[in-house]
Each structure stands twice: as C-alpha cells, then as structure tokens.
C-alpha cells in the first residue's frame, strides 16, 4: 500500500436528493440532458423506459428509485449519465453532476454497516470530501437480469 504506487482513481460525483454518490469515470461514456423516455411495459418502477441514443436503444434507470430514495420526477435540469455496465450501455437518471474527484484508493473507506440491503448491494465504499460524504456506487446488477426480479 505505497502511496506513490496507486494512481488516484477518477470518479464522477452526482447528487440525488440530499445525498451524493459517485461512479468510476472509466465506466462513463457521456453525460447528456434529460429527454422523455418511452416507458417499457411491465418494467420495474426504477426503469424509466428507453431513449434513442444516436440510433441505439438505451434503457434509463432512475438511480434514486433503484437505491430506494424514491422516484425522481424528471425535468429538463436532470441529467443522464451514460455508463457502460458489463456489455450493456445504460443511462442513469440523476439530479445533477457535481464534481470530478481524484481519489487515492486508501481514501475510500468501507461502507458503514447499516441494515439497508440496497446500500449493501450497491454502495462499495464512502469517501469523505470537504466535510461531505460521497458514496461510491458499483453499477453491476443495476438492471433486472431475470423475470423473477421483475416487480411491476
């Protein structure tokens, strides 16, 4: 754990409600404004629908709803973070992008042990920045994989 050996990880920080989250910048393809999505039938509540991203059909995940923070009513000021999750490309609906952070690996603290299952599933660590706390999100498992998970 030498300090010079680990280059700082670059993370994109964004806001949902009064909480701040971040994802690894390497997973992020682009950030674009909100445009109305076409709803999908029988989809989980956190899947807002699909939009046209230059000819590709892109599913939009309401990250707030996915994390159990309540559904977002999207407006023009909301943004979509286009991210690569495994082999898929997914749009994440968030309120606003706040920052780009360079964080050394050792600055990332383990997630405090709280009971919330969603937090355990998606929050891979927390980072203290200027007196705020930013949660590092892992994107795997964001989309429903099987019919079983489908909870319309």
């Amino acid at each position: 754990m030498s300090q010079t050996d680990t280059p700082p990880r670059e993370l994109i920080a964004f806001r949902i409600g009064d909480q701040e989250f971040c994802v690894d910048i390497r997973a992020v393809r682009e950030i674009r404004g909100w445009s109305p999505a076409t709803p999908l039938p029988l989809a989980p509540a956190y899947v807002r629908g699909v939009i046209n991203l230059r000819g590709a059909v892109l599913p939009i995940v309401d990250l707030g709803a996915r994390l159990g923070l309540g559904t977002t009513e999207p407006e023009a000021r909301h943004v979509i973070i286009v991210a690569r999750v495994g082999l898929r490309t997914v749009g994440l609906l968030v309120e606003a992008v706040s920052d780009i952070l360079g964080v050394a690996e050792e600055m990332i603290q383990p997630t405090p042990d709280i009971a919330c299952e969603v937090v355990r599933a998606f929050v891979k660590g927390v980072i203290p920045v200027d007196g705020r706390m930013i949660s590092l999100i892992a994107l795997d498992g964001l989309l429903p994989e099987t019919e079983v998970e489908e909870a319309a």
Partner: peptide
C-alpha cells in the same frame, strides 16, 4: 432496433424502433 442489446427481452415486445 434491438432491446436486448442494452436491456433484456420484454414480454409482448419484439423490438424497438425510432
């Protein structure tokens, strides 16, 4: 356009278009 590419198969929906 394929839905499966970035999402998954949806029952009752064959594909998407723009």
């Amino acid at each position: 356009k394929s839905l499966e590419q970035n999402y998954r198969q949806v029952e009752g929906v064959a594909a998407a278009t723009i």
